[in-house]
Nucleic acid binder design. Structure first.
Lengths: 343, 343
DNA sequence: TGCATGAATGCAATCGATTGCGCCCGTGTT
DNA sequence: AACACGGGCGCAATCGATTGCATTCATGCA
């Protein structure tokens, strides 16, 4: 018969009774760091009792006492954006073997939602935060975090004046490689469809685009700002571009925008890459399966997540890393969405 | 100057001191359910003190006392499988406003990993589990959960003899619609590339495929088992099929396998849908952007997640729902990967 | 005036672990 | 034989909340 109270689980005291010792002894016997204080014989008995009862320590209670919840908040805009799952897995796979658990919070780019999620995370006493929402400028939540003394690592966005370290891909180099690739293919009129320019990565990529174009012979480039990093926003921006310009190539701020561009081209009866070449950014999963297989800048998302987790835990261990900046290398992967410029 | 101990946060006692009352009074004043016990004036003072101090209740401590962690474990094979992020968001979006938080656990289809993740979740005293790993047959972890008295809801897999309720899409109807669609297009030789046949959904879909084919005039169908629900496994299976059969259409057990099929076709210089039509399953994000846009069975993944979360919370509220079965409707969405059978 | 009543609040136990401190006892030293 | 020492454990406080029960005090009623 199952226990009356279905949520009743085995506790230290249960193990202690069975082993005939005090629960303090059980606690010490089961912790490798303190097991040395206890006689071998007792340790053996305790271990045996614990495994017979199927004892699993209550991390929550331990956290209360130790003032460490062993949880990390991961703040992202939207898990269904294909950019994020690999990052989250990179984070989780690093945390799991170290006893930490990730709490995922989706903000949908909404200030109110972000604030609510942050309050939830505070209530759960997260030991640290990995923040991957790309907002630039005002960062009320980040400031709240800083005031509350919460450790954090930024992922793919800078922290403004806050001293939080940052893990990011080498956006500028990636954009430059894309422009260079298009230049070699003979493209001279290129448009960059940027993400919203209040995102730090959008700004970096747009700036890099302008610089790269200016540095190349006879190249002309303009920048259009999309309203969001989504397929539909990309499509709308591309429709606008087609209405008054005739670029032979597009550099999109991310792959979703690139997909929107491709849809707009199809709708206008234009060929890719025959009429217009398109370069994406991020190399999201299945970028090679789209129509046509997307030339894009590969970003090591899983590694970024793992690195952010690594840095955060190092910070929790007391490592000083104010304003640290980890830039991971990116690489252009050429597939079928880019081709020679039409004459 | 920030507090010395950076992790020190505002507690009930802090609020109590500032409001000049006992912490018990603060606790009651802040809980709408018990605020009626306290005088209006005191409630006002307490609320004011709490907000001045930026008090956020410690959910962990509360959970310890109330024996409810307010967390739900979500067990999936792999978050980077595009099928799962929408499910997880459906779950999280339902949980968040109700004060619950999801703990995501990836098992990678690995028994040892699954067991380890389960122990972690037990240690964190999850109030319930949503299990979406499709394993069939032995389910040691599920049985452990059942023994430990953990409530659970299955998602897209059955629970075998365990009484856990199940939320799933209407797989049989979806497969039947796919076969019907191909039949109408004139296809007579069809192969079903099934997922591993120890997954309950794979079995259901394969059975439905056989039944649907048998029911249609002159149709011949065979079933091939892929080693995993992945692009590469799908590709390998399709290579094998091409080596000794000549079907005009493929029904894939999910979209990833369908992508693998498409890659194999391309590698063999075959056109889709000119030479071979392909139907996927799940309508994963961006299925419409692949090459060619994929005809597939749309499954309401977000709703499935939300429904599973709803059922789990209802169960935690004491609702009896042994062996309940919620089947959500699916629909065939026809895009460009299917066309008339070649003659 | 005396006492029952009930509203408002305080006290202290409790949830499950960790940990500083002190007790007990066996051993070694002188 | 007396005592210091230290290994092995137990006691009890603690983390931050919740909650049954006790207490206080004002009010109403006889």
């Amino acid at each position: 018969m199952p226990q009356r109270d279905s949520t009743r689980r085995v506790t230290l005291d249960d193990v202690a009774k069975r082993a005939g010792v005090h629960k303090a002894t059980v606690s010490r016997a089961l912790d490798p760091a303190t097991a040395g204080l206890i006689s071998d014989e007792t340790v053996r008995r305790v271990r045996e009792a614990a495994s017979e009862l199927g004892y699993v320590p209550n991390i929550v209670a331990r956290g209360l006492r130790k003032n460490a919840s062993m949880t990390i908040g991961v703040v992202i805009p939207d898990l269904t954006n294909p950019f994020f799952p690999p990052i989250v897995r990179g984070i989780e796979d690093h945390l799991q073997p170290r006893g930490y658990t990730a709490l995922i919070a989706n903000t949908d780019g909404d200030d109110a939602a972000e604030a609510a999620q942050f309050t939830t995370l505070l209530g759960r006493r997260v030991d640290g935060l990995i923040v991957a929402t790309g907002r630039h400028g005002d960062q009320p939540v980040l400031e709240r975090a800083h005031e509350a003394g919460v450790r954090a690592v930024m992922l793919n966005r800078d922290a403004g004046s806050l001293p939080y370290p940052l893990v990011t891909g080498d956006d500028a180099t990636g954009v430059t490689a894309a422009v260079e690739h298009l230049h070699e293919l003979g493209h001279r009129d290129v448009v960059h469809i940027a993400g919203p320019l209040d995102l730090s990565t959008s700004i970096v990529r747009a700036d890099a685009f302008r610089t790269a174009v200016a540095a190349r012979d006879g190249m002309r480039g303009s920048v259009v700002e999309a309203s969001a990093l989504t397929v539909s926003a990309g499509r709308e921006s591309m429709e606008a571009v087609l209405a008054d310009e005739a670029p032979t190539a597009i550099v999109a701020s991310n792959d979703l925008i690139a997909l929107g561009v491709l849809r707009a081209l199809r709708a206008h009866g234009l060929e890719c890459p025959g009429d217009v070449s398109v370069v994406g950014f991020n190399d999201m999963p299945f970028a090679e399966d789209v129509q046509p297989p997307l030339t894009t800048v590969h970003v090591p998302t899983t590694e970024m997540g793992a690195e952010a987790a690594r840095m955060l835990l190092a910070q929790l261990d007391g490592e000083q890393q104010d304003h640290a900046r980890i830039v991971l290398p990116v690489s252009l992967v050429v597939r079928d969405s880019t081709g020679p410029a039409p004459r």
